[in-house]
Simulated scan of single mutants.
Amino acid sequence: MELYIDYDNGLGEQSLSSLLPFFEPLSFTPESPGIERETTNIPRINGVVLPQHPRDVKYTERKISVEIYLNSVIAENFYQYRRELYAVLVKPFPYYISTDLLPNLRFRVTCDGNFSIPKEKEKNHVSFTVEFNNFTGLAESKFTSLTKQNFHGEYWSPGMNIQMHDNLEYVFKNRKRFQVYNTGDAFINPMQHDYNVTLRASGKNVTIINHTNGERLKIEQELKKSQPVTFIKQYTVINNKPVKTSGRLPGLDIGSNDFEMQNTDDFEITFDTRFYYA
Score class of each variant (00 low, 15 high):
Gln179Arg: 11
Ile188Pro: 00
Gly137Glu: 00
Asn196Ile: 07
Ala201Gln: 02
Lys176Ser: 11
Leu199Gly: 05
Asn167Met: 13
Ala201Pro: 04
Ser145Asp: 03
Gly159His: 09
Phe135Tyr: 13
Ile162Val: 15
Val197Phe: 02
Lys173His: 11
Gln192Met: 12
Ala139Glu: 00
Met191Ala: 13
Arg200Ser: 10
Met191Ile: 08
Tyr155Pro: 06
Tyr170Val: 12
Lys148Arg: 15
Trp156Asn: 08
Ser145Arg: 00
Ile209Tyr: 09
Asn205Tyr: 14
Asn182Glu: 04
Val171His: 09
Ala139Ser: 09
Asn133Leu: 12
Arg175Lys: 15
Ala201Leu: 03
Phe135His: 06
Asp194Glu: 11
Leu168Gln: 13
Ile162Met: 10
Ala139Leu: 01
Phe151Gln: 10
Leu168Cys: 12
Asp185Ile: 05
Asn134Val: 06
Asp185Trp: 03
Tyr170Cys: 08
Gly153Asn: 06
His165Glu: 14
Leu199Glu: 03
Ala139Pro: 00
Thr144His: 01
Phe132His: 05
His165Pro: 04
Asn182Gln: 05
Leu146His: 11
Pro190Asn: 04
Gly159Val: 08
Gln163Val: 06
Val180Ile: 09
Asn182Trp: 01
Ile208Val: 13
Phe178Ser: 05
Glu140His: 01
Leu138Met: 09
His193Thr: 12
Gln163Ala: 14
Leu199His: 01
Ala139Phe: 02
Tyr170Ser: 08
Leu168His: 12
His152Trp: 06
Ala201Lys: 04
His165Asn: 14
Lys204Asp: 14
Gln179Leu: 12
Tyr181Arg: 13
Ala139Trp: 00
Thr183Met: 12
Val206Gln: 05
Thr136Tyr: 03
Phe135Ser: 01
Gln149Met: 15
Phe187Val: 10
Phe132Ala: 07
Glu154Gly: 15
Ser141Met: 00
Ser202Arg: 09
Lys176Trp: 00
Gly203Val: 09
Lys173Trp: 02
Phe187Ser: 07
Asn167Ala: 13
Lys148His: 11
Tyr195Phe: 13
Trp156Ile: 09
Asn133Ser: 13
Glu154Arg: 13
Met160Val: 06
Phe132Gln: 04
Ser157Cys: 03
Phe172Ala: 06
Leu138Ala: 06
Gln179Met: 11
Trp156Glu: 08
Asn182Lys: 02
Ser202Met: 05
Phe143Thr: 06
Met164Cys: 07
Lys176Thr: 13
Asn150Gln: 10
Ala139Arg: 03
Arg177Thr: 14
Asp194Ala: 10
Asn133Thr: 14
Val206Cys: 07
Asn133Gln: 09
Leu146Cys: 07
Asp194Ile: 09
Ser202Leu: 09
Lys204Asn: 14
Thr144Val: 02
Arg175Trp: 02
Leu199Cys: 03
Val171Thr: 15
Tyr195Lys: 02
Gln179Val: 15
Thr136Leu: 04
Asn167Gly: 11
Asn189Asp: 15
Met191Val: 07
Met191Ser: 10
Asp194Pro: 01
Pro158Ala: 13
Asn189Arg: 04
Asp185Thr: 08
Gly137Pro: 02
